[in-house]
Nucleic acid binder design. Structure first.
Lengths: 226, 226
DNA sequence: ATTCACACATTGGTTGATCATTGTCTAGTA
DNA sequence: TACTAGACAATGATCAACCAATGTGTGAAT
């Protein structure tokens, strides 16, 4: 019964609040009293409270007490990347990128600022200097993120981030390549620069097509059968 | 400068870990040292650590130290719709729909099963029978969800769900209309049916354009200034 | 030279005292 | 009686000291 330390207090506290039938904004017992009731130390109790507070399940104030927050807060307010990852495949994620990202490039061509273009240019330059696949992957990822940021649309940016997080979760470690180091004539370099040029010239159609071609090439690298 | 208490330490700590370029399982400075570096009390630091630990972003052990967990934890594993909602606007959400959903309709035309088409047809029929705007909104929402499901691509579906949740959070209660009840000649009916027809005929281009026209009309209803 | 045992320093965890804030009760005044 | 000011108690937050677990180095024994 010594294993209940790390998370036991949290579980115990959650159960207490749930079965205690507290309504929203009801006050619950003081810390010193509650930690005695639950038979745990005050630091354990406060640690559990800190987590519940970060979740919005409770709120507290000095001199007043601790109160239960909006009960719905623990609901489906968020999407867990890990849970989504269990229900999809690398192929699906690649396909989703092929659907979403060309449209992001199109939007970027219409909304990018001069500063965005400058950052993209820097990114393309650094890509050619990459000496390891690890470096290249990082810079490639940065390029796509910058294109997305250039759309200046928060919902689109968060959707891309979700897709990106999903990709990293799923293909975590599947980064083996045919060659040891990136070669200067790798198709991605020219493709990235074509996208950059299209964005710079405000040519949304070319940006969309450029991104589509690039991702099709990436897909063909990943799944040579196609 | 006293407001940085409740969450400031957590944000500060997240930033420190992020820009410190720590790899997975890297050890970070001891608590006593770190709280001096960050200029916060140890209890604040430990409170922030407790939250990061509950998210899986770090793990720690007595006598050994505190270590960064799976790198994906630094942006928490989930995206909170409420947090995103704070940083966006109805216009941005509408714009994002206009970017994403036409592509979803295009995909749906290529991947929908006969069953999907059947459900879409039912949905269109029920829409014309709606007697209140509340009912119509529900059925309209169902139509768009069905189109998304027809893509049969899990990442795309979850991205649409995220955008949909965002829309409901933001425009929560802004559903006033010019007329009291839906009229049979409302433009959406014909537009939905055009999309359905395009999907049924596997005409991806027409499905994409149909969805784009439909959402442009919806946008013009919401923001008559355009 | 190798190995093992033990002392010691480091680290996260815990505890109790104290601080700062809030609510309440009470004595005093009009 | 009505009302206000101040004392007092309760509460969450913070801090310093201490505890237990862990890693490391040191020196004696082989």
């Amino acid at each position: 019964m010594k294993r209940e330390n790390s998370e036991g207090a949290l579980i115990q506290l959650r159960a207490y609040i749930a079965q205690g039938e507290f309504e929203t904004n009801d006050r619950l017992p003081a810390e010193r009293e509650l930690c005695e009731t639950l038979g745990i130390g005050r630091s354990e109790l406060r640690k559990a409270f800190a987590i519940l507070e970060s979740e919005g399940a409770i709120w507290r104030h000095v001199g007043r007490g601790t109160f239960v927050g909006n009960g719905k807060g623990q609901g489906p307010d968020y999407l867990s990347i890990a849970d989504i990852a269990k229900r999809t495949t690398p192929r699906e994620v690649m396909h989703a990128r092929l659907v979403l990202e060309p449209m992001l490039a199109r939007e970027a061509a219409m909304h990018a600022t001069a500063e965005h273009v400058e950052q993209l240019r820097d990114c393309c330059a650094k890509a050619r200097e990459a000496t390891t696949w690890r470096q290249y992957e990082s810079i490639d990822n940065q390029f796509h993120s910058l294109v997305t940021e250039a759309t200046q649309n928060t919902p689109l940016i968060t959707m891309y981030e979700q897709l990106n997080a999903l990709r990293r979760t799923i293909v975590w470690g599947c980064l083996h390549r045919h060659t040891e180091t990136p070669t200067p004539d790798h198709h991605s370099f020219a493709e990235h620069e074509a996208i950059l040029e299209a964005i710079e010239q405000r040519n949304s159609e070319a940006a969309q097509i450029g991104m589509k071609r690039h991702l099709q090439a990436v897909r063909d690298d990943m799944f040579p059968s196609d």
